[in-house]
Write a protein that binds this DNA or RNA. Structure first.
Lengths: 194, 194, 194, 194
DNA sequence: GATGAATGAGACTTCATTCAT
DNA sequence: AATGAATGAAGTCTCATTCAT
């Protein structure tokens, strides 16, 4: 799935993602990252100023891939409901298929690191691509199919449940299958539809 | 609000909660916890085997308080919808009023520590009290007012959005007021009602 | 001669002085200092914030001892010449007897560290004790026995030759004995006397 | 003044001198020297076995230039005093005009490196050129104008004060002008004249 | 001959834990 | 019981040196 990385910088990023996801930032010594990546410790510092910069770079990689993974060629023949459900389905599918990405993001967002990064989730004023596809979806002007609610609440009803399920899936408390995904997407839709 | 702790063990737990919430586990040296708590480093090790045990103990304290904070004397004169909305309102109110608790839980759940803890959220087989009030709510047998969905999805539609909003509230991206809480509770209800 | 240090801080300072004098700052790893001092590495960091602070502390210790070692109870029955020669004799004697102190000072002054320290050699405006005894000597108002020269030149004719000889003594190029000290002191006097 | 170096070896030596003088040996990574010199790191190791050898080579370059800078075509029409004062004036002028050379020498002499180098200052037995012009001056047999003193003391009264002033000049504590140089040279002469 | 990416030994520093008082 | 000085394992990062291109 993920293309095999060929340049050293990507090899390091992949190894770091794996380690951070499994062990957390603070239980992943740089020396261990180097081992997994199959490079010398010093090489990591050739490509990244310090461990912090590496963490942010992993985030950028994962975030970009996620935006791409969620996106769907906009099909105007689909109803709002169908489009919306498609997006949520994509989101859960992608993160369920990429548990390292999900684990990494969870840690990243609940750490001091995320504070330094300006999240462009809510507005795309200053953002170049990638733009969150859900924001795109909702910013299409008022529709007759959706309740009038704050953007933050739309997003909460989408990412919240999905995140909760994925977390429990990783804990082994829940098994995510297509039926559950479908039910989740519909529930989210019901939460905000008129 | 929080009762003033009187015995040394509680004093330590409170100080630890504050530090962990503000600085994270790995930026909270035991010596600093001792300072804040106003006790010697050695004393912490009298009450807790090591730092890990302290972290788990803080979790237990916070988790218990949260269950209590959410609970409401079950009032059978209220409709299902009213009860449900009351529960969510309580949840968000409590965590919004106790940001340290919320921050701590976020870190705890997205860290390797939570893996070691067996969460008794979904079943109460082995659990002594406290039991999640929402689990109590849903386990009351089938009702005519709620869709037939997996328990995990019910919980996802409750905790997911609430958590998402609280997170953004702490980041300063969103301000949680009573109207938003009401809207959220209703949206969650709409997601699962028949 | 040097009292045997009893508290840990002094033990560390002594060990550091020895190592720095012999090997230089950069060839004296903190771990080695700890070995010589007979303490754990961590202990050094209990008493000194970091290696830099330790270096400055060693300087303070050496500098203070030197001022004391140079000083002589001012004896007004002695002529200017006798007083002056006494001071230089003390200076060379002291540093010759304490080669570590001399080597340390040489390194310290020709390193970036000394820039951070405000040397109070030239003025004692802001300085509390100790004050350089030579400065005291020259600041006693104009005398009829000494040429009118800039203070910096007085000091140059005192410390310059002494330093040069001590350096060569350490290299083994010269042997400093009482006769040489006497000759040096007289030459310095001749350089500035009327 | 300094001829523009044309061969790679000289370019490296110049760059190293500058860096060492400004930042010290240990804050001048070889990679940085390479940058300044505009050559690859590897090239430095083609011309110099290791960093130590480079340091010694810079010393040799600086030392040679200094000897040349101090020298004056011996003019037998001048008195001893005039010749002597001329030599000191040259010395201070040269080092004041070449602060990098002076800073480098200071560091070199007060570092463990200088121990490895056998200085040929005092005797020219084993020395090929250059020979210290002052040694030449004093070895001209006994004169009726100068006190009978050890060679090392002559040198101490010359280099000592000059060095001291230059050091303070670099620290900004003293400004060296022609008057001060003249006064210094005269004081040195007074120190040793009959 | 020249280059600079790659390496890893080793430096500095932090902090969980112990134990004598 | 309580304390906090002492410890050293372990983590982050630098940089002299090598070697394939």
């Amino acid at each position: 799935m993920s293309a095999i990385p060929k340049n050293k910088s990507d090899i390091i990023l992949r190894a770091a993602l794996e380690q951070f996801a499994e062990n957390g930032f603070h239980s992943s010594p740089v020396s261990q990252l180097a081992n997994i990546a199959g490079v010398g410790v010093g090489s990591i510092y050739r490509y990244f100023k310090d461990k912090d910069e590496l963490i942010h770079a992993v985030f950028a990689m994962v975030d970009t891939a996620l935006q791409k993974g969620m996106d769907t060629p906009s099909d105007s023949s689909l109803s709002d409901q169908q489009q919306f459900i498609q997006l949520i389905t994509n989101l859960i599918h992608y993160l369920n298929a990429h548990p390292w990405d999900f684990k990494f993001l969870e840690q990243y967002y609940s750490s001091p690191y995320s504070i330094q990064t300006k999240r462009a989730t809510f507005s795309d004023e200053d953002s170049t691509e990638p733009v969150n596809p859900f924001v795109k979806f909702f910013s299409g002007g008022s529709r007759g199919t959706i309740k009038e609610l704050p953007l933050s609440l739309y997003l909460a009803m989408i990412f919240g449940p999905a995140t909760f399920l994925l977390r429990n899936s990783l804990s082994g408390l829940v098994t995510i299958d297509d039926e559950l995904i479908q039910q989740t997407a519909e529930a989210s839709w019901n939460a905000i539809k008129l």
